[in-house]
Amino acid sequence: MAVDAAMKPSALALSAAKEERVRPFRDPTSESLPVKILLIALAAAFLALVLFLPLYAVFSEALRKGLDAALLAIADHDALSAVSLTLLVAVIAVPFNLVFGVAAAWAIAKFEFKGKAFLTTLIDLPFSVSPVIAGLVYILLFGAGSFLGPVLESWGAQVLFAVPGVVLATIFVTFPFVARELIPLMQHQGTGDEEAALSLGASGWQTFWYVTLPNIKWGLLYGVLLCNARAMGEFGAVSVVSGRLRGETVTMPLQVEILYNEYNYVAAFAVAALLALLALVTLVLKALLERVYSRDHALTPGH
């Protein structure tokens, strides 16, 4: 006991000494400057390695033998027909999904009905499915041994290993883009504006055209932009249904693969660089749209 009593004051003094070493005042909701700098540096290094280095590699490999070689590779007949097919596919697929996106968003955002959440999940389904499966399901639907394939073929319509198959596969993988952008936006906007327009005597189409569309134009554009980027860049799904008929069913990403597998690296990377440029333009437009978009949003109540 005596020892215990003797120990106690010194233990107290010790803990008091510890208490003396107080942490100096700092903003309690932020990190110290060195920690901040360390974290920023870590994040920047990670992103440089994961994002910026591949982007750099695309262009440096494309220009390995000079700009002329790269341009020559792009001006190649097969490459040009790949470019035009890619544009054609996007020009068909994007409007289809645009119309669908607007219709789906109208039905889901402007009305209350049972099964809405489930329907929304179904619309997002193509995002959860591997692109290879997207191709596979169309092979099963239209290929040999299917019901539809032979029927269509007897009418002279070829779906698989032809442009329609490429378009269908692209529509599948880009299916949700416009809808998922518009649904939350239109839900947030509610039905007040439309009800006001209708009460003033506007028809349904007039209401959509003069009231709804101006309200959703930026969101719509945003969805179309993302949809288009994916449509032009899709590889897996298209690769399954295309059959890789040169000059006929080869899109730009497939052309990249073909050239790469032929060890024609400069040409492969030249076409890839074209796609990378498209991606960069998409990112810039996206950032610009987000600015306009958030300015628009700032004006609506609840934000």
Binding site: E19, V22, R23, P24, F25, R26, P28
Partner: peptide, 25 residues
């Protein structure tokens, strides 16, 4: 509380000047 730092002056807890102590302490 120590959630902000005074531009000037002191805050005493008892006899101890706590102005430069962090909120945690």
């Amino acid at each position: 509380a120590g959630l902000e730092r005074p531009s000037a002056g002191s805050i005493f807890f008892g006899d101890e000047d706590a102005s430069h102590k962090s909120v945690q302490d």
